[in-house]
Design a protein around this nucleic acid. Sequence first.
DNA 1: GATATTTGACCCCT
DNA 2: AGGGGTCAAATATC
Length: 271
Amino acid sequence: MNILESSTHSGCQAVINEIEHQRALIRDLHDLILPTLDPCSRQEKLAQQLFQDIFSSSSKVISFLELGDNSKNQANLIKYRRKGGKNNMDSPMLGEEAKEIGNKRRKNAQHTGSVVTQAPPHFDGYQWRKYGQKWISKAKHSRSYYRCANSKDQGCLATKTVQQKESDGSSGTVRLFDVDYYGQHICMTDDIIHPYVVETTHYTAPMANHNQSSSGSTVVDNDVHEILDESFENLFMMPSIPEYLTDFTDIEMAGTLDEATSLMISEDIWS
DNA sequence: GATATTTGACCCCT
DNA sequence: AGGGGTCAAATATC
């Protein structure tokens, strides 16, 4: 690492530290303000949403600072892997280097959250591209593999798997999906919408609501009162619901989305 | 024609 | 050796 890189790196670290400090202050401010607002009121919901957006934004900045040009390198790597494939011996990246990076991705595919959702598991605020589907042994339903739609041009390595749960009879005819998220989004896109959903006929404010199971996955609970008692940590774990979904005309879909908005869990939001 | 999805094969990991 | 994650050609859709 040369002097320039070194100074840039230390500068980035200082900025990250400052942003971390801001996040702590925001957290304190949230704890201070929210109890003074009337639960279920417009102000309370708006405040929740604002805090969520502030925190989401700062998280993105930190991600970019931490990754730096790595995102470009990762994008190039993905391009290479797609173009060259596994048998392309003309590739300049051979031997230990290719092996190292190839393995790294699997090993380091950090599990960042999991949910059980009743809604179609595609509406979570991000755009995804399906890249695979497999029938898992002994499973009744196939598992689908998705990566962030920005993986190609921005090197975003976020992926998720979706698998319909096997019905245990307790949920009747309702279909449940296990959704597991891996990696962090490092992409910046206008497609990720952060709506201020304060008043809609179908949509309740996006309050996190879940019961953390021993396995770390999450199950929907429709009790609104429990939603309002949710801890602050979960507040910022909510996905951003695309704006078009807040004006859904399909009653059934709107109903399932109501629940879907209460599902996203990130296990290390404050880390 | 561009883009997204499907699907069989490959290969890493346990 | 087998399960499961990923690749990439084929196919579908717009």
